[in-house]
Write a protein that binds this DNA or RNA. Sequence first.
DNA 1: AAAGTTTTTTGATGCATATCAGGTTTATCA
DNA 2: TGATAAACCTGATATGCATCAAAAAACTTT
Lengths: 261, 261
Amino acid sequence: MPKGQLKGICFHPSKETKCVTCSLSSLCLPISLNFEDIDQLDKIIKRRQPLKKGEHLFHQGDRFDCVYAVRSGSIKNYAMTNDGEEQITNFHLPSELVGLDGIDCETYPVSAKALETTAVCEIPFARLEELAKELPELRSQVLRIMSRELRDDKQMMMLLSKKNAEQRVATFLTNLSTRFKRRGYSPFTFRLPMSRNEIGNYLGLAVETVSRVFTRFQNSDLIAVNGKEVHILNMDDLSILAGLPDQEQKIPNETKIANEG
Amino acid sequence: MPKGQLKGICFHPSKETKCVTCSLSSLCLPISLNFEDIDQLDKIIKRRQPLKKGEHLFHQGDRFDCVYAVRSGSIKNYAMTNDGEEQITNFHLPSELVGLDGIDCETYPVSAKALETTAVCEIPFARLEELAKELPELRSQVLRIMSRELRDDKQMMMLLSKKNAEQRVATFLTNLSTRFKRRGYSPFTFRLPMSRNEIGNYLGLAVETVSRVFTRFQNSDLIAVNGKEVHILNMDDLSILAGLPDQEQKIPNETKIANEG
DNA sequence: AAAGTTTTTTGATGCATATCAGGTTTATCA
DNA sequence: TGATAAACCTGATATGCATCAAAAAACTTT
């Protein structure tokens, strides 16, 4: 089916979902807002025509004025390194907020590009701040979302500085799986919206290495892959390889006091 | 001089700096607050006894209730990897806020430990939120600080996934230099508050590699090192090696439209 | 000041992953 | 539908950095 038609068939701006009825509301900004407040939030949100694959939401250096919530599809964030190479810093799935790192310098520090046909909610930041003035719950939700992203970033740093290729790919897959699950999709069967190249770029690995690890994982019956379709066959072992997913790792308490001084 | 005495000699809780008179106020939370507002902020801040080297501000997993501003000294954040290894995720210099990544799950996701005798301002988060209700400037300052940390984290990811050992160390040194400069210290001569081991851990390198790169940098007259004392002799070349510091990198605009679709 | 401990440095070796090169499959488009 | 390009996989080789080892220097402690 040609992508172009999707717009006409599936997307009716007049009938577009409101926050109240949106299936993602429990993951997105509206969490813990009451109906009235959600309605207020709804009023400042613009639903734009979906982006086609490869289209940009914004470019690195553009003036920051909106944050975006992914409604369907997926977005990658990337920056250009000094030698002109692309460096992917994030992938965003539905319900996730894009662009929060632009608040400080008032320009987006990275570009955002659709990996597939992608619908977003556009949230003018100035109006969000206005609204936050009156809605304490919205305020803390924004903080929580940013705080979570900070935490995820640290996890990513740990991946990049301590994990080997297999652990990186395993972490990547289990992480995606968890996120799909929370969004109501199967945690065991999903379609990767990004290429091997993009996975490698994100994970700090060469494409070839990603490809090889995928093959090795297949040979050990951890996963079954067909192009971008992934089946996780042995989640337990994959999670162990990943080094326990994001869930709380227990901290060895023994040395807590001993270590002081 | 024994560390213990510092407390008695240098730190008088009764005479402690207020935000209004604090030399760091232009870098820290009070930015863009007026005098009255700073005073309000001041009231919720507790200045604790300075931490001695090696003491913890909080441990990974502790209940999140405060964020901290470093007043003097320095703090490292670190987490334990699954195999019990330490992974340093950040170093904090005076005026920087510690603990913001705990907002979301209400426990600190990493530990915070003093690298040297360190004074902090303790800011109860609940009260900060209270205050933010009335002070829009404070609100956006918190957002800006978190947004900046997000941006820095992405920079760190790029370092970890694309830069080689020399580029990492060069980036580390120029970054420190910039931060010292903003705080009124010399950007060319400073004392590293952390060990080679900690630098390596943070940069995803072995100690030995850090040591070797330091030696190489000395041999090429980029820096002069004596233990933890560092002199930057050739900032230009060091910056080039680092791959241009954090400042805005120009984005090649040619392909902006061409890339779409 | 001496003894012990930790940190730093330097050298030799090994390995995980990058890079290069080729072939194959899958997508894109006329 | 076939042509062309892009993505993916696999093998061979190269290399940057980790690891191992051991000495030197810098701190601690008594």
